[in-house]
């Protein structure tokens, strides 16, 4: 090996590592620069303020671990289904194979896929919490995200818990094709049962929440909260610009825009999120119920009525 080759190899092998280290230095470093206003803040102080810039109020993007730390009472988090791992069902390959992409992303992020789920206490209230992680392939929803969220909701229905999902996703994961699209229906089905059990579901929309996530569980909350200035929408801005061939209005597809058009209940700064969620959960605690005989007999009548198309009813 010539000296030149040695240098070349050395450069090749160290460059990604040094890049990563640089990123981590910024994230874990003593000081953090706000990407909105440029003010440099003491990281410890910024974390105490939930990574919201004290100067301009900008919500610096945070990831699932930090989010769980912010919302769940100390030492009460019990993660679920950590052994559920993605595979490559379509043998998908674009410029890079999905298998390699998964492995690289897992190494880089120490995440298994784009969602963490579990049960824990939030100001003493037991909740089922799902947190999407944008670092993992843009928070995209494939089989693992679908399965873990469905199991979370099913468990919540069984144990009569409220569900909170922190959304952050570009939408369905293309590398798993139609399996990804169908996760939208699967999660919605679980939410239908949770709803039928008269339990509370609150999605929190964070930057960004788009595509298939917006067209399913993000918009199915009993109450829908959003972080300030998050991008929230169904179609991508570029797609809309292409179909319309014109620039989009200022503030289009932001939390504030959705609030104005009636699709979000409230915009809650991250610093108030935990207390707001706790308050809502307390307000929706199951009340001592009325006798339910009325409800039961009513559904019996409906059943008889709708069996009309069945020539021979086995009932």
């Amino acid at each position: 090996m010539s000296l030149f080759d040695w240098f070349a190899n050395r450069k090749k092998s160290t460059s990604p590592i040094s890049q990563e280290r640089q990123e981590r230095e910024i994230a874990d470093g003593l000081w953090t620069k706000c990407e909105a206003c440029g003010v440099v803040a003491y990281t410890k102080d910024l974390r105490a303020n939930q990574m919201v810039c004290r100067d301009c109020g900008h919500h610096i993007r945070i990831y699932s671990n930090e989010r769980i730390r912010q919302l769940i009472d100390n030492n009460t988090w019990m993660p679920m289904d950590e052994g559920v791992r993605p595979t490559d069902p379509l043998q998908f390959r674009d410029r890079k194979s999905y298998r390699d992409r998964l492995r690289d992303t897992q190494e880089k992020t120490s995440l298994v896929d784009a969602v963490n789920t579990g049960v824990g206490l939030l100001e003493g209230e037991r909740v089922a919490l799902g947190v999407m992680d944008f670092r993992f392939m843009g928070g995209s929803m494939g089989s693992v995200v679908g399965e873990k969220l469905t199991r979370l909701i099913e468990r919540a229905t069984l144990e009569r818990l409220p569900v909170i999902i922190i959304c952050a996703s570009g939408g369905a994961r293309m590398q798993e094709g139609m399996l990804s699209l169908m996760q939208m229906a699967k999660i919605s089905a679980a939410l239908e049962r949770h709803r039928e059990a008269k339990l509370l579901y609150i999605p929190v929309l964070t930057h960004p929440t788009t595509g298939g996530v917006t067209a399913s569980f993000a918009m199915l909350g009993d109450i829908i909260l959003a972080e300030p200035k998050a991008t929230i929408g169904f179609a991508g801005k570029r797609v809309i610009e292409q179909t319309l061939r014109e620039k989009l209005p200022e503030g289009f597809q932001t939390s504030e825009y959705l609030l104005q058009h009636g699709f979000v209940d409230a915009i809650v700064p991250r610093t108030n999120l935990k207390s707001t969620l706790a308050q809502l959960i307390r307000l929706h605690r199951p009340q001592p119920t009325q006798p339910t005989t009325h409800h039961v007999s009513l559904s019996g009548v409906i059943n008889v009525g709708t069996e009309r198309y069945a020539p021979v009813s086995p009932e």
Binding site: M184, S188, T214, A215, S216, F217, A218, M219, L220, G233, F234, A235, G236, V239, I240, T243, L244, L248, P249, F252, Q253, H261, G262, F263
Partner: peptide
């Protein structure tokens, strides 16, 4: 995919 569709809640309608 259009401005009006987003305004009227395309995502919500499908969901």
């Amino acid at each position: 995919a259009g401005v009006e569709a987003e305004q009227l809640g395309q995502g919500e309608a499908i969901a």
